[in-house]
Simulated assay, not measured.
Amino acid sequence: MRLTEGDLPGLYLVESPVHADARGSFARAWCRDTFRAAGIDFDPVQANLSANTARHTLRGLHYQDPPYAEAKLVRCVAGRIWDVAVDLRPGPGYGRWQAVELSAERANALFLPEGLAHGFLTLTPGAVVLYHMGAAHVPGQARGIRWDDPDLAIAWPAPPEVMSEADRAWPGLAERT
């Protein structure tokens, strides 16, 4: 397993070598020792699966504010997604974003520290996303930012065709509470 720091501080691309033989394949999904060796203290307390029927389904951009902030390890376990992280931490990086394609075939993942919003667009029908969460979801604490906020100018690879009403209604970055 190899961790490469992204453009946003604390954001890591996680690459897991895929070992294949006649039986199929094997890849390590998470390793506490690897994360700790990189200086990341991440102990998942919850795991979530997001199954998405249609191509170009958009989910996000989601986050929880402190004291409920969530670090997360996001992995696509079926299909492919365009995964996006937006920095919401005070400082010069505020509002910057980074995106990466995650796929089941590549067995790659993205680690997001607390303070980043997260969203994705499915690139294939039947995309399934697995999240390992560093904090539990707290009902009533979900927050979001509009996916097409011009202040962010995220370069989505296609317009979304399916999304929730809640995701359509999030405020822009300038209006977030």
Rank of each mutant, 00 (worst) to 15 (best):
I81G: 05
L73W: 15
L112P: 04
V14W: 09
A69S: 15
A109C: 04
A166K: 15
L13H: 14
I154L: 04
F120Y: 15
P113K: 04
A158R: 02
Q46K: 02
A22Y: 01
L61R: 03
A169E: 09
P66K: 08
V74N: 04
E5Q: 15
C76G: 06
G115N: 05
G91N: 03
P66R: 14
P66W: 07
W97K: 00
Y12K: 04
V14Q: 04
A85H: 10
L121G: 11
A127L: 05
D87S: 06
W147V: 01
I154C: 06
A29D: 00
P157A: 10
I81T: 14
P171G: 10
T34L: 12
L3V: 02
S164N: 11
Y94D: 04
Q141Y: 05
S164T: 15
P66V: 11
H137F: 15
P157Y: 14
A99N: 06
T4M: 02
E15S: 05
L49M: 09
A69Y: 03
L123S: 09
R80I: 00
G91C: 04
D21T: 03
A104R: 10
R168M: 14
A37E: 13
I145Q: 09
G6L: 11
Y68R: 11
P67W: 11
G172Q: 09
F26N: 08
A136G: 07
G24C: 11
F35Y: 15
D87G: 05
E5K: 09
S16L: 02
S103D: 01
A47N: 06
A29K: 01
I81W: 05
M1Q: 01
D33R: 15
V86T: 11
R96E: 09
A158D: 01
E175V: 01
A158L: 00
P125C: 11
R32C: 07
D43G: 13
M163C: 14
L3K: 06
V45F: 12
T122A: 12
T4Y: 01
E175M: 02
A20E: 13
Q98W: 13
G172E: 03
A38M: 04
R2K: 15
P171F: 13
C31N: 14
